[in-house]
């Protein structure tokens, strides 16, 4: 018998009350939010509870929402998978402009680099991560390139004339 979404919701609400909320289906994946303080416990519960048994961390990534209010500037998205029941679940947590959330390395070894990557791209600090340093970008880099305000193109380039690309300086960063 497949794991019902209502079941997951019920068990989580029983355990965590109102700190797990905004349940809903995003297409075929059951999605909900957790507050950053509880995130570690929620994921631990999802993993270790015998009925839920979400034992595989499929994906972990950050999202930047500069337009949102102060408490929802960043999101960290965790995709968990239960291979036995073949059910996926997506946990989100929203962070403020000074983003910090607990690491889940102790639960999933694969979270190590994924968290490093998220820090590298968004500057989201994973508290308790033993090796939170640059992974894909250069060590010398100081900004976080996946934040929306960071321009995609190399600012130092000299070989491309903006006029021939239909761009002017003013719209370059917003394009």
């Amino acid at each position: 018998m497949a794991l019902e979404t209502a079941n997951i919701q019920e068990r989580l609400s029983q355990k965590f009350g109102s700190s797990v909320f905004a349940f809903g289906m995003q297409r075929d994946i059951f999605t909900f939010e957790a507050s950053p303080e509880n995130l570690h416990e929620v994921i631990q519960f999802l993993k270790e509870d015998e009925e839920l048994n979400f034992h595989f961390l499929t994906d972990l990534c950050g999202v930047h929402y500069p337009e949102n209010d102060d408490d929802h500037q960043f999101a960290v998205v965790y995709l968990l998978h239960n291979w036995v029941e073949n059910t996926r679940v997506c946990v989100k947590t929203y962070l403020n402009a000074n983003p910090e959330v607990d690491t889940i390395i102790d639960l999933f070894l694969s979270a190590n680099w994924m968290e490093r990557e998220t820090w590298d791209f968004y500057g989201i600090v994973f508290k308790g991560h033993p090796q939170l340093k640059r992974i894909l970008n250069m060590d010398e880099m100081i900004s976080f390139p996946m934040r929306k305000e960071f321009p995609m193109e190399d600012s130092g380039r000299t070989d491309k004339d903006d006029r021939f690309f239909g761009r002017t300086v003013s719209n370059k960063s917003t394009l």
């Binding site: 499929t58 999202v63 998205v77």
Partner: peptide, 20 residues
């Protein structure tokens, strides 16, 4: 406006696309 996760079996594992 949506959030999609889709994955395929790539040459060396689950290749997923998480799209917002």
């Amino acid at each position: 406006v949506a959030e999609i996760y889709h994955s395929v079996e790539g040459g060396n594992g689950e290749l997923g696309f998480y799209l917002i």
